[in-house]
């Protein structure tokens, strides 16, 4: 029996399907239950060789979609900042470790207004970082060695990929340092911290051999709150 291809290059058996079952997102699916296969179809054909071949065209599983968004990727540019917090809002309900979840994606255009709320200034550390400042944005800022870090410290091997984060709370205008569970120690003004801890102006955060002094921009004297709404 003969297989055929539709104009879109799908293989199917015309004896089983009046038209290509793969076209139009399977909207013309046929409920084929023969053969004892759960999502049936299939019929061997031959192709000049000794082996049968052909096509399988299940489209079976009816809706009941839990989560249909194919959540996707990030920026194609590896040097661009990737904001994992944004991903977490839209990710499919399954672990990385193996669940059949959708791929993830974040689109730059959807991220909206995320202003600077403060800075970290590197006062001690390797020569690439010393003297540099890092913006803290109105969100959770990841600090670490990973390329995805918001505050990326390179060249300090005692710093983990994701070592800590600094969260800004717009309502209370407060800054909280959150050590990551698995990471190397974080110190505030010399004392090791293991739980989320509020930080204030000129606190010194130490990760590895890197010292970062915290300087707030948002404070009693300035808040983006009203400004941001004005713009929107």
């Amino acid at each position: 029996m003969g297989y055929t291809t539709c104009p879109n290059g799908h293989l199917y058996d015309p004896e089983q399907y009046a038209s290509c079952p793969h076209c139009n997102g399977g909207s013309n699916m046929i409920d084929f239950t023969g053969g004892g296969y759960p999502q049936g179809t299939i019929a061997p054909g031959s192709f000049g060789g000794d082996y049968p071949q052909g096509t399988v065209a299940p489209n079976g599983f009816g809706g009941g979609g839990v989560q249909n968004e194919k959540i996707m990727g990030t920026h194609a540019d590896p040097s661009a900042g990737f904001n994992p917090d944004e991903v977490n809002k839209t990710v499919a309900p399954s672990d990385y470790s193996g669940g059949p979840s959708k791929t993830i994606a974040v689109f730059e255009a959807e991220q909206g207004f995320v202003p600077v709320v403060g800075w970290l200034v590197c006062t001690e550390g390797n020569k690439e970082e010393k003297g540099k400042s890092f913006n803290l944005l109105s969100k959770r800022n990841k600090i670490g060695r990973d390329r995805e870090s918001d505050v990326r410290i390179t060249g300090d091997n005692a710093i983990s990929g994701y070592n800590a984060s600094i969260a800004f709370d717009e309502e209370e205008c407060s800054f909280t340092l959150i050590p990551s569970d698995t990471a190397n120690n974080v110190r505030i003004n010399g004392k090791a911290v293991y739980v989320p801890t509020t930080i204030v102006a000129y606190d010194e955060i130490r990760l590895g051999v890197t010292h970062l002094v915290f300087v707030p921009f948002c404070s009693e004297r300035f808040s983006w709150g009203k400004k941001a709404e004005d713009k929107v």
Partner: peptide, 23 residues
């Protein structure tokens, strides 16, 4: 001689977002 087959399912999704084709 290439023996060819294709398989597609929609899973529990409402839409089929995978596409494919041979030439």
């Amino acid at each position: 001689t290439y023996q060819i087959s294709n398989l597609q399912g929609i899973g529990t999704c409402e839409r089929q977002e995978d596409s494919f084709g041979f030439v």
